[in-house]
C-alpha cells in the first residue's frame, strides 16, 4: 500500500513537472518545475529499491545543478532593463515560437511512435519473476565501484576535475586587452 502511494505521488510529481517544463513560458518557473520532476524521479528510485541512487539524485541535482541553473538564468536575463534590479525578473522568456513548437511536436510524435513500438511488447519478451524484497544497496555499490568498475570510477573523477577547471576557466571574466585581442 505504501509502495503504491509513494509510487503514484512520485510519478505524478515527475510527469507533472516534466510537462510543466514544456508548457511554462517563464524560464525561472520551468527550472522550479524541473526541480519537482527531479525530486519525483528520486522518489521513483526509492520504489525501485535504489536508496543510494535516490540520495545521490537529491544531493547532486537539488544541491548543485538546479542552483547553478538558477544562477545562470539570473545572470543572463539582464538584456531588457524593465525592473528594479539589473537582473530582470519578468523578461526571462524561453524564446520559443509557434514554428518551433510545431516542429518539436512532430519530432516527438515520430520518436514517440517508434519508441512505443519498441516497448509495446515488453511483457512478452521479458520474464518477470517474483520481485526481491527491498534491501539496502550502499555496501554493494561501494564494493562494485572499487572492484569491477574501478576504471570508470577513476575516469569519472578525472572528468569531474576537468569539468571543474574548465568551467572556472571558461566563465572567468577576461581582462580588457584579452577581449580585444
Amino acid at each position: 500500500m505504501f509502495d503504491n502511494f509513494i509510487f503514484l505521488s512520485s510519478a505524478a510529481l515527475a510527469i507533472g513537472g516534466a510537462l510543466s517544463v514544456v508548457v511554462s513560458t517563464n524560464l525561472m518557473h520551468s527550472c522550479i518545475y524541473l526541480l519537482m520532476s527531479l525530486i519525483g524521479v528520486s522518489g521513483l528510485y526509492v520504489t525501485l529499491s535504489a536508496d543510494f541512487l535516490a540520495a545521490t539524485q537529491l544531493v547532486v541535482y537539488v544541491g548543485g545543478v538546479v542552483i547553478l541553473m538558477l544562477f545562470a538564468i539570473m545572470l543572463t536575463a539582464g538584456s531588457d532593463n524593465k525592473t528594479v534590479n539589473r537582473f530582470g525578473i519578468v523578461k526571462i522568456p524561453p524564446m520559443g515560437n509557434l514554428k518551433t513548437y510545431i516542429m518539436s511536436l512532430l519530432t516527438a510524435g515520430v520518436m514517440g511512435c517508434s519508441v512505443l513500438k519498441m516497448i509495446m511488447n515488453i511483457n512478452q519478451t521479458t520474464k518477470l519473476g517474483e520481485l526481491p524484497p527491498y534491501s539496502t544497496t550502499v555496501e554493494q555499490i561501494g564494493t562494485l565501484l572499487v572492484t569491477d568498475h574501478v576504471l570508470a570510477f577513476e575516469i569519472s573523477s578525472v572528468l569531474l576535475l576537468g569539468a571543474l577547471v574548465g568551467a572556472a576557466v571558461i566563465a572567468r571574466p577576461r581582462l580588457e586587452n584579452e577581449v580585444t585581442k
Binding site: 524560464l27 518539436s104 511536436l105 516527438a108
Partner: peptide
C-alpha cells in the same frame, strides 16, 4: 519526450 520537446521548441540555451 518532454525533454525532446523542450530541446527543440525553446530557443533559450538554458532551456
Amino acid at each position: 519526450v518532454s525533454g525532446l520537446v523542450v530541446m527543440i521548441a525553446k530557443k533559450n540555451i538554458i532551456a
